[in-house]
Amino acid sequence: MDALVVKDLYKAYGNDVAVGGVSFDVKDGEIFGLIGPNGAGKTTTLRVISTLLTVTSGELTVYGKSVTEEPNEVRKIISYLPEDAGAYKNLTGRQYLEFIAGFFTSGSTKKEMVDRGVGIANLGERIDSKVDTYSKGMMRRLLIARAIMTQPKLAILDEVTSGLDVINATEIRGIIKDLSKEGTSVLLSSHNMFEVEYLCDRVALIDKGKIVADGAPDELKKEYSANNIEEVFIKVVRG
């Protein structure tokens, strides 16, 4: 079964159409990248899929469950990591993981889940410090750990590496690769086209709320006889 099917999604803020008829699907176990410039509609699309925003029109299903009809069922199998997110500043990293885990399980499986999160975050002793003492890289690792420890069937990650230094960004890309090896499907957005090329099995290029091209990075490069995805994008947009 497909991890995600998006059919003709429209989303308007008032009279402003942010996403204007987008269709794509994410296969089970695949890493799928939504790429495009700022304001293209990536965050809006991810928020709609994550049950956060209402749908203006269109159909969305996550593992066969409708986002609009059964949002609570969808929430059980997804994990959404917003762009530039933080955590509750008076909690420690571990307390934050415990807080989130409490919504999924209890008892000894909850402890397992938290331990898994602590392992992914890999923050050493600092996992027991208050999160408002964390650097940007530490915070992102904690949040990635939070999103993954629940073993979602579909992880939705908005600009996960933006604003991070090379070391932290590479480490997080590694975590995402491993995640898909364990069978979790991933939908991520990025405006860093090189990153997407390295990470994703398939990508969709989005511009001004519309998908302008999609396919595996290698196919796209061949089709547009370009050296990298950035060139593909420029060729597509300039027409």
């Binding site: 956060l52 929430r75 059980k76 917003p82 997110a85």
Partner: peptide
Amino acid sequence: GQEKENKTLETLLTLPVN
């Protein structure tokens, strides 16, 4: 205001909680 700035509210709303 802080919950929105930190997106903790956004995160909470995607969890399986009524």
